[in-house]
Design a protein around this nucleic acid. Sequence first.
DNA 1: GCCAACGTTGGC
DNA 2: GCCAACGTTGGC
Length: 151
Amino acid sequence: MAYWLLKTEPDTFSIDDLAKNSTTEIWDGIRNYQARNIIRDQISKGDIALIYHSSCKDVGIVGLAKITSAGYPCPHQFDPESDYFDPKSTVDAPRWFVMDVAFLSKFDTLIPLKALKSAKPLNEMALIRQGRLSVQPVTEIEYDFIMSNLT
DNA sequence: GCCAACGTTGGC
DNA sequence: GCCAACGTTGGC
């Protein structure tokens, strides 16, 4: 089982929105090739995702979700009516991928970015080093550190 | 294939 | 709203 960090802007789709849906939700709108490759090649059903709120007042990790599918082609990319339509994408060669996620838990208090930055064992996280990747891997060591020291 | 210009992300 | 970091586009 692998661990991931998924960024979302709470003004658009927050962990509370995810929690409202008792079953499963499509995680769409990823239009970045690095993130696309991760979804297409590495995401597996049963993986765990840390949900991160970005571009808002309180940025940080807010809870957990379960990945409930492997990566599969984003259905909206073929729909001219959709905001996610991509004319260069075909069914034979889909350009964009999505996965399904389901709410697991919301932390009582969010883990602020500041706390993640000041934790030495997390120095190598893409979140800290690169900053601009909306789907990123989290090692088991990082996950365990976060869950046992920062929640 | 290089690289400048431009657009987007995202913290502050 | 500012700005740094990074990705994408397009001329050559």
